[in-house]
Design a protein around this nucleic acid. Structure first.
Length: 818
RNA sequence: GCCCCCGUAGCCCAAUGGCAGAGGCAGAGGACUUAAAAUCCUUCCAGUGUCGGUUCGAGUCCGACCGGGGGCACCA
């Protein structure tokens, strides 16, 4: 009869003791130990923690706890991204105060995180919805405003006709409002933007610093999102217009193939070109139709091309041909110059348009493909220029170089770059967010709220109608919105919009260095000591927005002179999702697995272990594929070992039995290596091996009294402390030590124990294995070769044959090629 | 349509270009037990999606295809 391992009892026992010991309070930044800043993406406080949180925090914890054991001064903070729409939804649906709802949820989260034994530094907690935090959002906004990086403009924004509100791009899912599934339309509104496009090139180029330390996938997504392209800007003279129209093209080599020009239907340019003409009414009707079209329609790339001829003409600068100018919605008003030169022979969209409107198609690049006039397929390959005057006979790249130089010479164009990245719209017509610290005065215009009047606090939600109605709820708070202008004292109004909550999360990692600083957003010295973040852990859902915005803010703050680094996150780990039966968990699908139930059933350690062991951290975990009962069984085996050891703590390990010691040190080496290379599942497998080997040694090897058995048991406990903190602490006590094991220190590796006594060398003929022999790991190549030829399998196989080549890789392999 | 990642045992997954299996789940058998649970021991199972190439040697590198997943999507 074995004594039973009571995981729930162990949890209840250690939690208060850890609360007392606070093993995860970060040292001060002048701590002599090297620093490590390990950061988990902070959560939105919606309900309780779920399985996804459990996985992310289990992984972040392995990393943080490992570096603590390795003797680093680790900062592993936590906070809450606590502004946002769900609080308002709850307020609307259930009539609760969004503030109360939010902070109640935070309390629930916090309690769950403590039970889950996350190694967070609880003395650095921040909430973005605290005025003490969002004051600095407002400060930062005004810094951006000062630098001309925050501005207002009229633009067509996503609009949900049902909810009567502006939507962020991320709230538009496949053209539908994520809340009510209504097709989203566009609406022209005056909104605040941040000029992230000024940083497009640096955001792209600085990614070279992250190479190898960020997932390739994320960097690729960011590169695509920024979408830099290079080409040329070309001026086209317009009949009856003083100014030429400039177009952007990536294919200036096809200039001789231009057969018409298209301007964006919703652009000011298009309106100007038809102003006063007889087709203006027809044009207006077309534009109205375009504006009414939902994103759903626009998303269908194969829908027929539409457009209207503007009765205006441009002149092709290279051959003087007269080109019809059309307006169409397939040209975007906010990319490039909002006007294009159309080359139907070599651009599919232009060809589709040309065929629909019966416009001419000219081929200027012989690619060996079939005639687009016949096939309806524009040719896009490499080839030789034809029908192109001075460019004839050149290759595509040579032609681009030559024509660009010619355009520059004649003052008709220049080489140019373009980005797909757009400026960041940060205005939101919502209540539960940071008020934009601007006052609108009839005579002074936009007036920043003076520094000493920050924060602009949110008014009480009580009495405000938070229902979406097309304008910010704050606008109805009369006492709040009506102020006197800080400049002239005349009656003025506060900006009633609040900031996108991505603003809050784009710099929170700086604030952790001193979340209670009430004179500045962060201390430059402290920040430059702790930052950049050495290890960031979070979901791939933030691959673009959050990470791009954070990188942008970091560069701006660097330029202001407050930071001495330009990239905030040195290393990034994206954990996968937790699925159930192959798909994302959701109530409607009926496959929801509740974290608290799993914890009640299997205990914290078994759940954490299951998530970490399930596979590589970046892969999705299917909860149907893991076995928390199996994890618990393993923890039990490990725990039992700690009770079997009969030697005293502090015994000299070097007197222990050698073979077990070698296994222990090999495991120690492999576990460290696996953790540092993010292969946590492999690290766990190595701990399991060590447990198996130790079990065997205690039962039928060196026995429980041998110092090697204690060494193995203590190594297991410390390694396990990264994943299963309760079990590890309990083992540590049973082994005669005082808490907390989290700070026990990683055992010192004895390199001399890593070398095996003998290794198996494989003997091959033509790459096929003939025999295996035991050799010394330090055997020389010639020695090994000699042994190989002396081997009976080999000698019989090579009898009479000609040896072409012998490959020797001591001490592992000999391959004889016949 | 464009781009990226991944296909190893019934399942989850290991394997610096060098013995395909480390670890686990599930299955089978056994020990202990009056029996069961727990525990311990033993054990079955694939030649790495397909085809071709490079190499002395390929799960690993290259190419094509098939299958799965993801990102972008009228960006000129």
């Amino acid at each position: 009869m074995h004594e039973a391992y009571d995981i729930h009892g162990v949890q209840a026992k250690w939690l208060p003791i850890w609360d007392e010991l606070t093993p995860f309070r970060s040292g001060s930044a002048d701590d002599a130990r090297p620093k490590k800043y390990v950061l988990d993406m902070f959560p939105y406080p919606s309900g309780d923690l779920h399985m996804g949180h459990a996985e992310a925090y289990a992984l972040g914890d392995v990393i943080a706890r490992y570096w603590i054991q390795k003797g680093f001064n680790v900062m592993h903070p936590i906070g809450w991204d606590s502004f946002g729409l769900p609080a308002e939804n709850a307020a609307i649906k259930r009539g609760v105060d969004p503030r109360a709802w939010t902070y109640e949820n935070i309390a629930i989260h916090k309690a769950s995180m403590r039970r889950y034994a996350c190694s967070f530094d609880w003395d650095r907690v921040l909430h973005t919805s605290d005025p003490e935090y969002y004051k600095w959002n407002q400060w930062l906004f005004l810094e951006l405003y000062k630098k001309g990086l925050a501005y207002r403009k009229d633009s067509a924004v996503n609009w949900c006709p049902t909810d009567q509100t502006v939507l962020a791009n991320e709230q538009v899912v496949a053209g539908l409002c994520e809340r009510c599934d209504t097709p989203v339309t566009k609406k022209k509104l005056n909104q605040w933007y941040l000029k992230i496009t000024d940083y497009a090139d640096r955001l792209l180029v600085d990614m070279d610093q992250l190479e190898g330390n960020w997932p390739e996938k994320v960097m690729l997504m960011q590169r695509n999102w920024i979408g830099r392209s290079s080409g040329a800007e070309v001026s086209f003279v317009i009949e009856a217009r003083a100014e030429p129209i400039v177009v952007y093209t990536t294919r200036p080599d096809t200039l001789y193939g231009v057969t018409f020009m298209v301007v964006a239907a919703d652009s000011e340019l298009a309106a100007e070109l038809v102003a006063g003409s007889e087709i203006e009414p027809e044009f207006k009707a077309y534009v109205d139709g375009v504006k009414a079209a939902s994103d759903i329609d626009r998303l269908a790339t194969d829908r027929p091309k539409t457009g209207i001829f503007l009765n205006r003409y441009a002149i092709n600068p290279v051959n003087g041909e007269r080109l019809q100018i059309w307006a169409s919605d397939y040209v975007l008003s906010d990319y490039g110059t909002g006007a294009i030169m159309a080359v139907p022979g070599h651009d599919q969209r232009d060809l589709d348009f040309a065929r629909a409107m019966k416009l001419p198609v000219v081929v200027v690049l012989d690619t060996g493909e079939e005639d687009p006039n016949q096939t309806g397929i524009a040719t896009a390959g490499e080839g030789t220029l034809i029908n192109s005057g001075s460019l004839n006979g050149l290759s595509k790249t040579d032609a681009i170089t030559k024509i660009t130089a010619e355009l520059v010479e004649k003052g008709l164009g220049k080489s140019a770059k373009n980005y797909r990245l757009r400026d960041w719209l940060i205005s939101r017509q919502r209540f539960w967010g940071t008020p934009i610290p601007i006052i609108h005065c009839d005579s002074c215009g936009e007036v920043p709220v003076p520094q000493d009047q920050l924060p602009v606090r949110l008014p009480d939600a009580a009495g405000l109608d938070l229902k979406p109605k097309g304008s910010s709820p704050l606008g109805a708070a009369q006492d709040w919105v009506n102020v006197s202008c800080p400049k002239c004292g005349a009656p003025a109004k506060r900006d009633a919009d609040t900031m996108d909550t991505f603003f809050d999360s784009s710099w929170y990692f700086l604030r952790y260095t001193n979340p209670f600083d009430d004179v500045k957003a962060f201390d430059a010295e402290l920040v430059n000591q702790w930052l950049p973040v050495d290890q960031y852990v979070g979901g791939v859902t933030h691959a673009i927005l959050h990470l791009l915005y954070s990188r942008f803010f970091t560069k701006v703050l660097f330029d202001i002179g407050l930071l001495n680094f330009t990239e905030p996150f040195t290393r990034l780990l994206n954990q996968g999702m937790v699925l159930m039966d192959g798909s994302a968990m959701s109530k409607s699908r009926g496959n929801l697995v509740t974290l608290s139930e799993q914890l009640d059933m299997h205990g914290v350690d078994a759940v954490r272990l299951s998530l970490v062991f399930a596979g590589p951290p970046e892969d999705d975990v299917d909860w149907a594929d893991v076995s928390p009962t199996g994890s618990l069984k393993f923890l039990n085996r490990a725990w039992r070992i700690s009770g079997d050891i009969t030697s005293e703590p502090g015994v000299d390990f070097t007197t222990g039995e050698l073979s077990l010691r070698k296994v222990t040190h090999k495991a120690l080496h492999d576990i460290g290596f696996a953790v540092e290379s993010f292969r946590f599942n492999v690290a766990v497998a190595r701990i399991m091996e060590l447990v198996n080997a130790t079990r065997k040694a205690i039962d039928s090897g060196c026995g429980p009294k041998d110092p090697a058995a204690r060494e193995a048991a203590e190594t297991i406990a410390i390694a396990l402390s990264l994943v299963a903190p309760y079990t590890a602490e309990e083992m540590w006590e049973r082994l005669g030590h005082k808490p907390a094991i989290a700070k026990a220190g990683w055992p010192t590796l004895d390199e001399s124990l890593l070398e095996a006594d003998a290794v198996t060398a494989i003997l091959q003929i033509n790459g096929k294995i003939k025999d295996r022999i035991e050799v010394s790991p330090s055997i020389s190549e010639s020695e090994l070769e000699k042994l190989a030829f002396a081997n009976s399998e080999i000698s019989s196989a090579i009898a009479g044959a000609t040896i072409l080549k012998v490959i020797v890789r001591a001490p592992k392999l000999v391959n004889i090629v016949l």
